[in-house]
Computed example of a mutant assay.
Amino acid sequence: MVDREKVSALVEEAKRERLEERDVLINALHKVQDYFGNYIPIEAAEVVAEELGVPESKVYEVLTFYTMFSTEPRGKYVIRVCVNLPCHVTGGREIVQTLQETLGVKFGQTTKDGLFTLETTSCLGLCGVAPVIMVNDQYYGDLTPKKIIELIDSLRNGGDTK
Score class of each variant (00 low, 15 high):
residue 2 V to I: 05
residue 3 D to E: 13
residue 3 D to T: 04
residue 3 D to R: 08
residue 3 D to Y: 01
residue 9 A to F: 07
residue 10 L to E: 00
residue 10 L to C: 02
residue 11 V to I: 05
residue 12 E to Y: 11
residue 14 A to W: 04
residue 16 R to F: 05
residue 17 E to A: 10
residue 18 R to M: 13
residue 20 E to H: 10
residue 20 E to Q: 13
residue 20 E to C: 04
residue 21 E to I: 12
residue 21 E to G: 07
residue 21 E to K: 15
residue 22 R to M: 10
residue 22 R to N: 11
residue 22 R to Q: 14
residue 23 D to Y: 09
residue 24 V to Y: 12
residue 28 A to T: 06
residue 28 A to G: 05
residue 32 V to D: 02
residue 34 D to H: 11
residue 34 D to C: 03
residue 34 D to W: 14
residue 38 N to I: 05
residue 38 N to H: 04
residue 39 Y to E: 00
residue 40 I to H: 02
residue 42 I to H: 06
residue 43 E to H: 01
residue 43 E to W: 02
residue 44 A to V: 03
residue 45 A to S: 08
residue 45 A to K: 02
residue 46 E to S: 11
residue 50 E to M: 09
residue 54 V to M: 09
residue 54 V to Q: 01
residue 54 V to I: 15
residue 55 P to R: 08
residue 55 P to G: 07
residue 56 E to Y: 12
residue 58 K to W: 00
residue 59 V to P: 10
residue 61 E to N: 14
residue 61 E to W: 13
residue 62 V to G: 03
residue 62 V to I: 15
residue 62 V to E: 12
residue 64 T to D: 08
residue 64 T to C: 01
residue 65 F to D: 12
residue 65 F to P: 00
residue 66 Y to W: 05
residue 67 T to M: 03
residue 68 M to N: 08
residue 68 M to H: 11
residue 70 S to F: 08
residue 73 P to M: 04
residue 75 G to H: 04
residue 75 G to K: 01
residue 75 G to I: 02
residue 76 K to M: 12
residue 76 K to R: 14
residue 78 V to H: 00
residue 79 I to D: 05
residue 80 R to Y: 09
residue 85 L to G: 00
residue 86 P to E: 01
residue 86 P to H: 01
residue 86 P to D: 05
residue 92 G to D: 06
residue 93 R to E: 15
residue 94 E to V: 10
residue 95 I to D: 05
residue 96 V to T: 07
residue 99 L to Q: 06
residue 100 Q to D: 03
residue 103 L to Y: 02
residue 105 V to A: 05
residue 108 G to I: 12
residue 108 G to L: 08
residue 109 Q to K: 14
residue 112 K to N: 10
residue 114 G to M: 06
residue 115 L to I: 13
residue 116 F to A: 03
residue 116 F to R: 07
residue 117 T to S: 14
residue 118 L to F: 06
residue 120 T to Y: 13
residue 121 T to M: 08
residue 123 C to L: 13
residue 123 C to Y: 11
residue 124 L to D: 07
residue 129 V to A: 12
residue 129 V to R: 14
residue 129 V to K: 15
residue 130 A to L: 08
residue 130 A to R: 06
residue 130 A to T: 04
residue 133 I to V: 15
residue 136 N to Q: 02
residue 137 D to H: 08
residue 138 Q to I: 02
residue 138 Q to S: 15
residue 140 Y to F: 15
residue 140 Y to T: 07
residue 141 G to C: 10
residue 142 D to Q: 11
residue 142 D to M: 10
residue 145 P to E: 05
residue 147 K to T: 08
residue 151 L to H: 07
residue 151 L to P: 10
residue 152 I to E: 01
residue 153 D to Y: 12
residue 156 R to H: 04
residue 158 G to T: 07
residue 158 G to I: 06
residue 159 G to K: 08
residue 160 D to M: 13
residue 160 D to E: 15
residue 161 T to M: 07
residue 161 T to F: 03
